[in-house]
Amino acid sequence: MKIALQVNGEHHSLEIADENTPLLWVVRDLLNLKGTKFGCGKAACGACTLHVDGEAVRSCSYAVKFADGKKVTTIEGLGNEEAPHPVQQAWLEHVVPQCGYCQPGFMMATAALISKNPKPTDEDIDKNIINICRCATYYRMRKAIHRAAELERQRLSLTPKNIENGEE
């Protein structure tokens, strides 16, 4: 099956033998973007979380055929050292990662959360951020999520147009 999709702003046209191949492996092994992680392959841990058309998706359980014609964002496309995404900025400020393996998934889930809800309460965070971190960095993560939301609100207030649109 021919799949056309945009990943981190780049167009790709791929010939995929099995259209049910998880998007995770297409991103990791075909496009060589290793930031999206394999943790369980059962949509249980969230390490593979990325965005499809702005929505958080667990890519180990997302057949690539559903991504046809869509925009995919991975941790590599979220931001970079020169221009970190508010979530990445907050993660740097709070020195969140330990082993770091699950962190891209958490950051993608958080980026989705603050794009829908730029002022999440602790309860909102508890409900939406349900990935698993074995190093248990949750304590700092919660602080970083509040900080990321704060940075996001500052960013939105600079560009009032975005407030109406909600998502960027």
């Binding site: 049910n20 998880p22 392959g41 059962k42 949509a43 249980a44 979380t49 929505e55 958080a56 998706v57 667990r58 180990c60 359980s61 997302y62 057949a63 559903f66 889930a109 989705a112 959360l113 794009s115 829908k116 809800n117 909102d124 508890d126 409900k127 939406n128 951020i129 349900i130």
Partner: peptide, 29 residues
């Protein structure tokens, strides 16, 4: 993992049913 109804029966604002459940069964996961 504490998933529940959410506002529109589709989960929470960012982590929705559709974060994991797509339009067809996933035989890999």
């Amino acid at each position: 993992f504490g998933m529940s109804r959410g506002k529109e029966n589709k989960g929470f604002s960012a982590t929705k049913c559709a974060t994991c459940h797509q339009e067809a069964n996933n035989l890999n996961s």
